[in-house]
């Protein structure tokens, strides 16, 4: 059983790393929570001499949880996109030309 918990903890830890890198927001908490549960279970049922590996997994899970929560709490912002802003100005000038042409046809 200890092996199963260790494998599951490693698996969810890997998924957690991917989710922590991606901008998944609170969704990333899900695999981290599962990694925490399984590494915790593996730690508690392990013999004293076999606690080292699940302990590392547990520490990594806690670190990832902190990272994910910190990222989730950061405000959602839109980057200043000068190219997009310029495109909008050009588009508006084009629109005015089209509208003037359209009115000329009336």
């Amino acid at each position: 059983m200890r092996k199963v918990y260790n494998i599951l903890a490693v698996l969810f830890l890997l998924v957690s790393i991917v989710f922590a890198v991606l901008p998944m927001g609170t969704l990333a908490v899900l695999p981290v929570a599962l990694a925490l549960i399984f590494s915790g279970l593996a730690f508690f049922i392990s013999e004293a001499d076999a606690k080292k590996f699940p302990k590392i997994l547990l520490i990594l899970s806690v670190i990832l949880l902190v990272v994910v929560l910190a990222k989730a709490m950061m405000p959602d912002e839109v980057a200043t996109d000068t190219e997009f802003e310029q495109k909008k100005i050009e588009s508006k000038n084009e629109d005015l030309k089209d509208l003037e042409e359209l009115e000329g046809l009336e």
Binding site: L22, P23, M74, D76, E77, V78, A79, D81, F84
Partner: peptide, 14 residues
């Protein structure tokens, strides 16, 4: 519609 900056590197929407 503009994606939040954290998404821009993965899937940019404008």
């Amino acid at each position: 519609a503009t994606t939040f900056s954290k998404w821009d590197s993965f899937f940019k929407i404008r």
